[in-house]
Design a protein around this nucleic acid. Structure first.
Lengths: 194, 194
DNA sequence: CTAGAATGTTGGCGGTGGTCACATTAGTCA
DNA sequence: TGACTAATGTGACCACCGCCAACATTCTAG
């Protein structure tokens, strides 16, 4: 049963799986992200993805790593070189908006216990940590950068998750942005006076 | 095949399922929480739980609701009537400790998109919202209670999740507690001056 | 040109969520 | 007390999933 000439090998199944996985995640949520569905979408047998990903967690971690990079881009776009509290607030807004626009991806990135030690993941999250510390350190030279960035990241991360879970009304993006901004300002004002 | 006299009906399968589900969650994490495993543990056919829970999500939501109540108890125990920032910090520490001691349960409560609108869940989370607002309102009569409690809850919630995800070192409970305390103090000091 | 490494396929195993018809029991009402 | 009904538990079944192994095809290094 010759399938014409060379459609047997896919070409770049690894990347195709990643793309398919992200699409499934966006379209139907985390529960739709199965290796078999990914294979179907890539037009390939159900076990082919195992040639490129050891198991489901490996695929999920790869997706999460892509998510971390995208999040970093978003934050950088929100403000390339933040230095005052309002710059930081803009970045916080971008963080929360990312979570609300790609809820399933955000949950994969932060909400699952799987493969916390995957090299891709630890590298990506370490990058975010450094990013936040660098910004905070630059914005508040006098403060303890570690404690300060801890508080900032936690506040923003918590805002994202609570909005995602419907604990805060997330229907109106403007309202969300205002809420995030005022919360961040409150914290940063405090640090200025310490 | 008479199974003695009356072991056909379980007695209180609904409660037994809940208990079994919580045990599975504690012992082997979220992935072990399947309706079939619950049924096995309760000593009942795999389809019996469906008489009491419409589907898996319904069971999970019930477990989450129990978790909300337990969390509320913990917070109340940490400090019955908080009024100064340090009282609030103690409650924050209890919140994070709860997350770290029952990670799977905490993730079920806040980390899953399922059944956000289940009556049990909305009631339980509304109770938490009110609880936080009441505390914050009492502690800071002059501040906007909504904005203030938003910031407090988000900060604490974010600290819990980031510790849970290994983004902050959570090995030493004392270190964790110190981190949480200092972050909360920073925020509350700010509000005092507004 | 050929041997072996990569990659993809088929088939299968055990587990899971969910539904159905059926069996058993408990509660109610005459 | 006895019978009828609703509640509850059972077993068989379906589709899907993760994962594995044997096999087929293609690519590539020598």
């Amino acid at each position: 049963m010759p399938t014409s000439s060379s459609s047997y090998h896919h070409g770049d199944l690894r990347a195709a799986c990643l793309r398919a996985a992200r699409e499934l995640l966006e379209e139907d949520g985390a529960s739709a992200l199965s290796l078999r569905a990914v294979a179907r979408r890539a037009g390939v047998a159900h076990s082919a993805p195992y040639r490129h990903y050891a198991d489901r967690d490996a695929l999920v971690s790869a997706v999460a790593a892509v998510g971390y990079r995208e999040l970093a881009e978003r934050l950088a776009t929100a403000h390339p070189s933040p230095s005052i509290p309002d710059d930081l607030a803009a970045i916080a807004v971008a963080y929360v908006q990312f979570a609300l626009q790609r809820p399933a991806l955000f949950r994969v990135m932060f909400g699952e216990p799987c493969d916390r030690d995957s090299p891709e993941r630890v590298a990506a999250t370490a990058a975010i940590t450094q990013y936040v510390q660098a910004i905070v350190g630059r914005s508040f030279p006098g403060s303890d950068p570690e404690a300060m960035s801890t508080a900032v990241w936690a506040l923003v991360h918590g805002l994202a998750f609570l909005h995602l879970d419907g604990k805060f009304d997330a229907a109106n993006p403007t309202v969300v942005a205002d809420r995030v901004r005022s919360a961040v300002r409150a914290l940063l004002t405090a640090s200025n006076l310490t």
